[in-house]
Each structure stands twice: as structure tokens, then as C-alpha cells.
Computed example of a mutant assay.
Amino acid sequence: MEGNGGSEEDDTKLSSNTKVAFITETTVQIIICILAWYIFSLSISLYNKWMFDKSQLDFPFPILVTAFHQLLLSILSFAAVTLKPSLKPTAATENRQGVTFYLTHVLPCSLAAAGDIGAGNVSFRYITLSTYTMVKSSSIAFVLLFGVIAKLEKFSINLLGIVLLMSVGVMLMADTDKPDEESDNGDQSTFMLGFFLVLLSACMSGVRWVFTQLLLLKNHDSKVALDGSKKVKNPIYTIYQLSPPMAVVLFIVGSGVEGLGKFLSDDIWAEKGVFKSICLLLFPGLLVFFMTIFEFAILQRAQVVTLSIAGIFKELLTIVASTFIFDDRLTFINLIGLSITLLDIVWYNVHRYNEKKHELERQKSLERDVEFELENV
């Protein structure tokens, strides 16, 4: 008896002295993945701005360049799926995906994604990177709006408030300084064109999100765990499905709007050489692929809210970097609009977290009720 009592006492002491480590291996992995995500995402924004801005490299073919980015993504995702077949959905799921599925899920998603990325890259020729980043953050409002329409989101007063507050932030971010005669970005009409393009990009991002969610649900039999566990859907196969039609659509539109002949006869091919020019055109596609991988890696190890909060700091980091690198200027009204937008994003994340928490609690309650009923059978 005494021996057993001593053993229980020792176990109690051991339990009380056991501490949960603040820095775990998973925490370190999350930090590394977030830093890598920042690096690739920021590099893409800075690189595209440098390539398309009239005051920088001034390569006037953003749509065609984006088409080649998608072509590279198609090649990389095809290689990934071929080397690792486990990235594909189950055979039963693939068998259900015929022509109707392609026309109702893959093609609409590809068109929305092409509009999102294409319009965003074209806007770099007319507005600053800071303005692009601020206005593009309004995509959350469009995500919620189209999510409610597609019945992927439940309408609530919180959602309405988030959308309305985001609208106010976007309007304030449209404020500009007096036109600067030495800069095209200072011209009001030019700015409004760029502003409209990035707002269109944010809108198409909302449409793209809806179709992507539907596509992921069709590609995978299991849903994402509400507690942020590792049951996260792999985006590589989705890239594999979407990139080829995106490349084709962007190539056709770019050839008609920008001119394939002008693209092939541009001075860049002679000035920098064919090989170097091709590398310059395709390099951002490589950055996008690795950014997606690290984004997925974060979701594997942390909750979706972690990625969303990290995204807020990424937006701020992009604005700070563009201020130092491209000498972007923000008006006082812009800063107010930015602050409102960031607060709105925080509100959105809190709302999303509470929703997932309540849903998880509801599921656990249902499981307890089922267990209780089975025990009393």
C-alpha cells in the first residue's frame, strides 16, 4: 500500500513539474514557413511592379507575361503530380470529373483567376505598389459577398458590417495627392484607371475564391478540420487543373489586347538577349509556385487564422518596402483608409475564428450526445 501511495505521489510531482514548452519544433517550422512566405510574396509584388511600371523596366505586356507565368506553373505542378501521385484525389473522385465538371467548375475558376491576376498586373503600370496593396486587401469584402451568394457563407450582421467598413476604407484609399506633372502616376485619370483595375482584380478574387472552394470540395472527399489540424487540402492539384486554361485564356486575351507581334519584336529581346529575357519573364512564376507551397505548409502546421494574421503584417511589410524602394507616397486620408482596412481585416479574422470555434464546440456536443445515446441503448 505504501509503495503504491509513493508511486502516485511521485507521478503527481512529475505532472506538476512538467511544463509546456513555449518554443516547440512546430513553432519553429511555422516561423520559418511564414518568413519564406513573406520573402516569396514580397518578391513577386516588387518584381512585377519593377517589370511593368512605366518608370522602371516598362515592359508593356503584363497580360502575356502572366500567361507565361501560368505556363510555368502548369509545368511545375504537372511535374509535382507526376513525381508524387498521392497529390491527386482518389480514383473515384477523378472518375466523377468529366466534361460537365470541367465546364462548371474548372473553367469558371480559371477565368476568374485569370481576371484577378491579369487585371492586378496591368494595374502596376498606373498606380503605386502601396495603392495596389491597400486596394487589393478589399478582396475580403468580395469574398464574403460572393460567399453569401454561393451559400458558402451564412449572412450575418457581422458580415454586413465587415463589407460596409471595407467599402469605406477603399473609398478613403482612393484619395490622391495633387497631380504631379513629372509622373504618370500623378495624373488623376491614369490613377483612376489603375484603381479600377486593381478593384476589378479584388472583385475577381472573390469570384475566384468561391469557385476554388467548390473545386476543392469536389477534388477531395475530406474537409478541412475546424481545429486547424493537418487535414488540409493540397493546392498543387488545383494549380495543376487551373493553370493550363488560365495560360490559354491570358495568352488569347494578351495577343489581342497587347499584340503578340509587338511582344516578340520588343526591344528587350535585343537589349538583354533571348535567354536572359525568358528568365526575366518566367522568374515570377517560380516565385508564385514556391509561395503557394509555403502557404500550404503554414496551413498544415497552424490554424487558418494564423495565416490570415500573418497576411496582415505582409500587407504592411509590402507598403513599407514600396515606400523605401519605389518612393511611394501616402496621403493622410490614405493612412486613415489603410487603418480602417487593417482593423476590418482583424474584425474578419476574429469573426472567422469565433465561427470555427462555435462550430467545433457544436460538433463535440453532438458527438457527446451520440456517445451518451449509445451507452444507454
Rank of each mutant, 00 (worst) to 15 (best):
S138R: 00
L129E: 07
A112C: 15
I117H: 05
I127T: 02
Y126I: 06
T133L: 04
V122W: 02
S123I: 09
T133I: 07
A119T: 15
M134Q: 10
A112P: 05
A114L: 01
F142V: 00
L129Y: 06
T133F: 04
M134F: 15
S130I: 03
G120E: 08
A119V: 11
S123D: 05
S123W: 00
T128E: 11
Y132V: 03
V135Q: 04
K136N: 03
V122E: 00
G115H: 09
D116E: 12
I117M: 12
L144G: 03
I127E: 07
N121E: 13
L111S: 12
Y132E: 14
S110F: 10
I140F: 11
S130E: 08
Y132R: 01
A114N: 11
S138G: 10
A114E: 06
I140C: 02
A114R: 07
V143R: 01
S139K: 05
A113E: 13
Y126Q: 06
L129R: 05
T131R: 05
F124A: 01
L129A: 14
S137R: 11
S139W: 02
R125M: 15
S138N: 03
S130H: 03
N121F: 15
S130Y: 04
F142Q: 12
G115I: 07
N121V: 10
L111M: 15
A141G: 07
G115E: 13
T128G: 15
M134H: 09
I140E: 01
V143S: 12
K136H: 02
S139Y: 04
A112T: 08
I117N: 04
V135D: 03
Y132N: 13
S137M: 13
A113T: 15
A141N: 11
S110H: 13
M134C: 07
I117W: 14
Y126W: 15
D116P: 09
G118A: 10
K136G: 04
D116H: 12
L144V: 11
S139L: 03
N121A: 10
S138E: 05
S110G: 14
A119D: 00
S139G: 04
Y126P: 01
S137L: 10
I140Q: 07
S137C: 11
S123Y: 04
V122M: 08
A113S: 15
I140H: 09
A113N: 14
S139D: 03
N121D: 12
L129S: 13
S138P: 00
I140V: 07
S137E: 09
M134N: 04
I117F: 13
T131V: 12
S137H: 07
S123L: 00
G115N: 14
R125P: 09
G118V: 06
Y132S: 10
G120C: 05
F124L: 08
M134P: 00
K136S: 01
V135W: 04
T128L: 02
A119E: 06
A112W: 13
T133R: 05
A141E: 06
V143G: 12
V143H: 06
G120L: 10
G118N: 10
S138L: 00
A141F: 05
N121H: 14
S130V: 06
V122S: 03
Y132I: 00
K136C: 06
L144A: 09
S139M: 07
V122T: 10
S110T: 13
S138D: 06
S110R: 15
K136Q: 06
S123A: 14
